[in-house]
Design a protein around this nucleic acid. Sequence first.
DNA 1: ATGAAAGCGCTAACAG
DNA 2: CTGTTAGCGCTTTCAT
Lengths: 326, 326
Amino acid sequence: MKPTIKDIAAQAGVSIATVSRVLSNKRGTYSEKTKEKILKVAKELGYHKNTTAVDLVKKKADEIAVIINATPTNFSNMILSGIQQRATELGQRVIILYAGDRNTDMQHQAITTVMARSVSGILLLAVEPDATDLELLKETRTPFCFVSLYFGDDQILSISSDNKALAYQATEYLINNGHTKIGLAGIDDYHTGSQRVLGYQTAMRDHGLVAKNDWVKRGDYSYEAGRQLLQAFLPLEVTAIIAASDMVAVGLLNAAQQSQIAVPDKLSIIGIDGTFICEVTTPPITSVTQNFYEIGVRSVDKVMGKATETFVPTRIVVRGSVKLNR
Amino acid sequence: MKPTIKDIAAQAGVSIATVSRVLSNKRGTYSEKTKEKILKVAKELGYHKNTTAVDLVKKKADEIAVIINATPTNFSNMILSGIQQRATELGQRVIILYAGDRNTDMQHQAITTVMARSVSGILLLAVEPDATDLELLKETRTPFCFVSLYFGDDQILSISSDNKALAYQATEYLINNGHTKIGLAGIDDYHTGSQRVLGYQTAMRDHGLVAKNDWVKRGDYSYEAGRQLLQAFLPLEVTAIIAASDMVAVGLLNAAQQSQIAVPDKLSIIGIDGTFICEVTTPPITSVTQNFYEIGVRSVDKVMGKATETFVPTRIVVRGSVKLNR
DNA sequence: ATGAAAGCGCTAACAG
DNA sequence: CTGTTAGCGCTTTCAT
């Protein structure tokens, strides 16, 4: 049997109330002497506070729940580091629930699980919620915040890069380097994808270029998607492609090399994300790099009710996969 | 205020006990009619069971806690999938606690947090515990199991690949392909590392070869380690290197290519892990592939008290980074 | 500075 | 089949 405050109280010859006060650090409500005694007994007994009981009586857990979607891209670690860091600073524990790979059932289940626990906030990492999920989430009084996903709905908390701006930035970078026929590969049909298409199209228009419809190809952000899409781009004769993720970029790169298309001489590729994988390919991949750590930090602020910008700036990191114009 | 069973009871004109019975599916203890009514009211009120309260009264949470270490290598997703899958089958929820990157404090904190909750099992993923951690863990009555780490202590539950056998397998594969001067790069000084050294040395000896001491180089399983270690191997004139992880393998590969050393013609490299990264390099990396999903599945079995083999078999996946002997 | 007692939301005997 | 009651381990008034 695990020891409880009752055991400590008995051992120390005080009431459970006193034990509770000492263990919860309610300073000024107990004498130094009883404190010493209680702490000593607690250690002897190998006591650990039962969080479940505390949470029940306090009707709130100092805990942030992160529901995470295992997408093919893997920037999650960086976001998690940021979350963990900031949460600890704010005295919150962090628990992570894994929602599989875009698996609706598991997503549901994760949300339900979290709602049944009185967490102080819910962070949804790369989760595209369906109508039911959103319903559930709203129904709860717990604040929730989408991370790395922007709804375009200011009623719903979220933190992410500005996908429109990001795509604009990538497109403009390519245009500035002399490209006019630019593809966009591997984006999805949801919020993130459409925002990026918009940014891409706007940049093209702003520079007096036309973005052909079939220059935009859907995919699932994966390496395989990248590989396959290269073939689709071949007859289109674009000179540069914006990849929806680093993984897509690597897929394009490898497929290109296999087809004897020199990167960046014949084809330029720019990735989106800027994870380590950009650095280990040959040539290394130029990317629009997202500040994932900061996204994590701010998501905690946001869900804890602190004011923060919704968008975290991105930047171009020049490596070797885009042909430079000089 | 969130609705409770009390609210439902009031609304439905029954006692809270009946509500509890229906909501906990204690079949045969209630009539179909009251069930309908209660379920209806519950839905209307937007009721969700309070797990905290349930866990408290049951003195156990149907929940497995995974403490995960963010190592540079990233096979964790696959292990997590396996864990999630099996846990769900066994009616257990899964929560994940992130322990940072070999960060002692966070590791401690994670373990303490978990102990304060009455989880049914603790899984430690790629966590090298220090003495204090182990002390804490043992003190609790909760079963715990190390995943992807073998202690060589049969008192302590663990699931992993057999690191000795794995290294033996890699070494033998290289020997069978004509190599006699073989390096081992990037292993750590803990359990995993020393087991691999042992397997490597044994294989060499079994084939009548001597393994020179400086053919074994320590590292931290990272890409950077791989890059740096290649330089150290250059004067040693080994013809093949076993990399402690896929990331180390990529580091070696890139550094070699930069130094104009053809892989696999001048230098063969074999990786350990077999994650996706092996498939995206040029040449793709031959690896000893671990069955991470299965490791995840079995770790749940183990921690839930089911009998399972401690070691999960590995296999060689031939790609393009080892020169074949024919 | 400390104790007694109520109660967080739920389950599980025990009666009926 | 259903209601009553006693807790689970802890915090928090309210007294003293």
